[in-house]
Design a protein around this nucleic acid. Sequence first.
DNA 1: TCAGTGATTAGG
DNA 2: CTAATCACTGAG
Length: 191
Amino acid sequence: MQKSFSKNGIGLKGESHIDLIRGRDRLPREFYLRDVLIVAPEILGKYIVVRLQKGLYSKFRITDVEAYRGSEDKACHASKGRTVRTDIMFREGGYLYVYLIYGIYWMLNVVTGCEDDPQAVLIRGVDNISGPGKTTKMLKIDSSFNKEDLVSSDRIWIEGTGVLPDFRTGHRIGIDYAGEYWKSRPWRYYI
DNA sequence: TCAGTGATTAGG
DNA sequence: CTAATCACTGAG
């Protein structure tokens, strides 16, 4: 765990517990409304804050993400149409899309773009944690976070500066079923 | 390399 | 109702 905060406001210098609750530096709706290929790299280096229990928060720097872009992207769950599960991806950006994979691991995604254009950023890793399943385990993310609004939630949000760290790109992981073209899109971004 | 694990989905 | 699938991980 990179940072945790007691009820007394112990934590990063200049930040109090109350600042955290209010999400003083949280990213606004507009950040998420842009195309996923813009938002995904810009999420790198920003911090995801999650309430672990009353008065205790964890804060991790995001280091590894992937973009899933629209109905035409064969790797995007929404490419098979609008279903109960994928409905949230069709909403405007800023919501969370959380689902279970292989019966064990929760995947954490941030919806981006405009309404009716299903896009999301998969959070693949944070500082010292590699892999999307391990990341949600560490952050204690489960189905109860599905459809949560990062802009107004009192238990999860993203904050950070506009400084973009150096990053690399690569192909997305675990989407062999999507075919060569979509598999080869360089839509993984990592520090 | 490969099994584990259960929600989601399409199809009868 | 059934069966297939799966943005993964860790053991060997």
